[in-house]
Structures are given as structure tokens and as C-alpha cells.
Design a protein around this nucleic acid. Structure first.
Length: 280
DNA sequence: CACGCCTCCTGTGCGC
DNA sequence: TGCGCACAGGAGGCGT
């Protein structure tokens, strides 16, 4: 489940390999679901940068072709890993360790960037530079949790206004970008907030803000959490799994108080919390 | 408008 | 051992 720390780790490995490379050729798996759009438009364009917003990778690209009008020259390749998406480089459009290639990008250095995605939840699209209206979640994406844009007062205001459970709010991407099921449970555990709480007040909002920053920053430092699927571009795992206090720890004692952690479903997602530390 | 339920998809792990 | 099935969840679509 690639969330912000996992996607950031992928970004850091992709950037030095992809910046200034030209995409010569593109292929993607034809599939009934429309999870790929305008991917062909990446061909013939040079990758200017490898950026990240929330769980999205954004690759600004510029056309190498002289007959492309100026306003169509700048595009963005938008990549989302879904649940099981991963990238690998190969000298051919295949790889011994990669069984579910859904797309590949042939580069001008002869290598291929392979997009592997067993469960097909990933998305790939090419859009005009900065035009995200066709990608609703990206379009309405909240602030980056590790940037100054993540303002604690605004976060508290937003949480006080929504009627959703705090767990649903964290997963929504509008209040803060890049938090998924793992780090939502971790942040709520650290902030001692019950996942089904609604309209959390100022004190709890401040605790949750600090917890999100701490949890995400720690996971970025450890190159993400490998629980089952997530791998970096070099095939290695993240090191954050040993530092989880809540996610996947149901039935084990709480690291703070020793109470058995409870496993439930909140916002249609498996949710683990401490019934003593995280009171409703 | 916004919340929340349903769906997509397939490998894994469990119980019998 | 093998089979069947529940389960994992990010985001989009849609009903309320």
C-alpha cells in the first residue's frame, strides 16, 4: 500500500535515473477499466523532473519535436501506484522478477522503465502541464504533511467542519495529502484518538497534526513500510514495518499501556487501535 | 455539497 | 494436499 513515504522513496530512486531521459516508446496493457489515459503522449518527450504530491508521482515532460505547438509541448506524466504498483528498470521490456507488467516506457539510453501492478489499481495518465482537473483527488489534494503548507490551525478548522469520522477524514486526501490506511492508524494511535471520533476539537487536532508529521517523517527516513507488496525501484524493502505500533498489530499488547489492540472496520478499511489509549 | 457505500482487481493465507 | 473463499485497500463513481 504505497502511501506518501513509499512513493517518496520511489521518487528518490527514480529521479536520478529519469531526469533528462527521453521517452522513445510507450506500451500499456489494454484493459476494460480506464486506468490509463493518453499515455502515448509521453512518447517523444524529455523528462524534466520527478516530483511527488501526496501519493502521486508527477513527471513534467517537454516535447523534443519541433512541430508541436508551444501550448501542447509541456505535459505531465501522472503515475499512481494504487495498492501494488512498483517500478523496475530493465534492458528489455520484461524482467525475471516482474510478472505483471501493465505499462513500460522505453528510454533513450536503451533501458525500459517497467510498471508492475498485480492488482491493477494503479493509474497512469498524461495531462497538460499542471492541469489536474481530470484527476479529482489530485485536483483537490490537501497540503503536504512535511511542508509549511500543513497549517495546524487550518487542519483543526477543517476537522471541526467535517462530519466524517476522523479516520475517513485522514484517508480522504483533502485535509492532508498522502496518508493511507497504515499511517492513519499509526497517527491516530500516536495522538491517542479513537478512529471513529467525529468533529475532534482543538487539542486533539493539534495532537493529530503533530502525530501525522512524526509518523510520516519517521517512515520517510526508513524508506517506507513493507508489509507485503511494496518494493523500491532497486527491489529492496522499506524498514518502517518494525516500527509500527497499530497497523497490523491487532491482538498484540499496546506499546504504551499493554492493553490488547482491537481490530475493527472503519471507513470500509481494516483499523487497529488501542481501546484504552484511544477512547471514543 | 459532501458523506459513505460499492466497485475494481488478483495474490495470499486460512480453514476444512 | 487441494480446494474455495475471505481478505487486503486507493480512488472513482454514485446514491442519499
Amino acid at each position: 500500500m504505497p502511501e506518501l513515504p513509499e512513493v517518496e522513496s520511489v521518487r528518490r530512486q527514480l529521479a536520478p535515473e529519469l531526469i533528462d531521459r527521453v521517452v522513445d516508446r510507450v506500451w500499456w496493457d489494454e484493459h476494460p477499466q480506464q486506468r490509463f489515459s493518453d499515455v502515448d503522449d509521453a512518447a517523444g518527450r524529455r523528462i524534466e523532473d520527478v516530483r511527488r504530491r501526496g501519493k502521486y508521482l508527477l513527471l513534467p515532460m517537454t516535447s523534443e519535436l519541433p512541430d508541436v505547438p508551444a501550448d501542447e509541448r509541456e505535459v505531465e506524466l501522472v503515475l499512481h501506484l494504487g495498492m501494488t504498483g512498483s517500478f523496475r528498470f530493465s534492458d528489455r521490456p520484461a524482467h525475471d522478477d516482474v510478472a505483471h507488467i501493465r505499462a513500460w516506457f522505453g528510454l533513450d539510453d536503451g533501458r525500459y522503465l517497467l510498471f508492475n501492478d498485480p492488482r491493477r489499481f494503479g493509474r497512469v495518465s498524461v495531462v497538460p502541464a499542471g492541469q489536474h482537473s481530470t484527476i479529482p483527488t489530485l485536483h483537490a489534494l490537501g497540503p503536504e504533511p512535511l511542508s509549511d503548507d500543513f497549517d495546524v490551525e487550518r487542519f483543526a478548522d477543517d476537522l471541526s467542519r467535517t462530519s466524517a469520522t476522523v479516520k475517513a477524514a485522514l484517508l480522504n486526501q483533502r485535509f492532508v495529502a498522502g496518508v493511507g490506511n497504515i499511517y492513519a492508524d499509526e497517527a491516530l494511535w500516536l495522538a491517542r484518538i479513537h478512529p471513529t471520533s467525529r468533529r475532534v476539537g482543538r487539542d486533539r487536532a493539534h495532537r493529530l497534526h503533530a502525530a501525522i508529521v512524526a509518523v510520516i517523517a519517521g517512515a520517510v527516513d526508513r524508506e517506507g513500510t513493507t508489509f507485503r507488496d511494496y518494493q523500491m525501484v532497486n527491489g529492496e524493502s522499506g524498514r518502517n514495518a518494525d516500527f509500527l505500533h497499530a497497523y497490523g498489530q491487532g491482538g498484540r499488547p499496546c506499546d504504551r499501556c499493554g492493553t490488547e489492540l482491537r481490530q475493527t472496520v472503519v471507513a470500509q478499511r481494516g483499523t487497529t487501535y488501542c481501546p484504552r489509549c484511544q477512547r471514543a
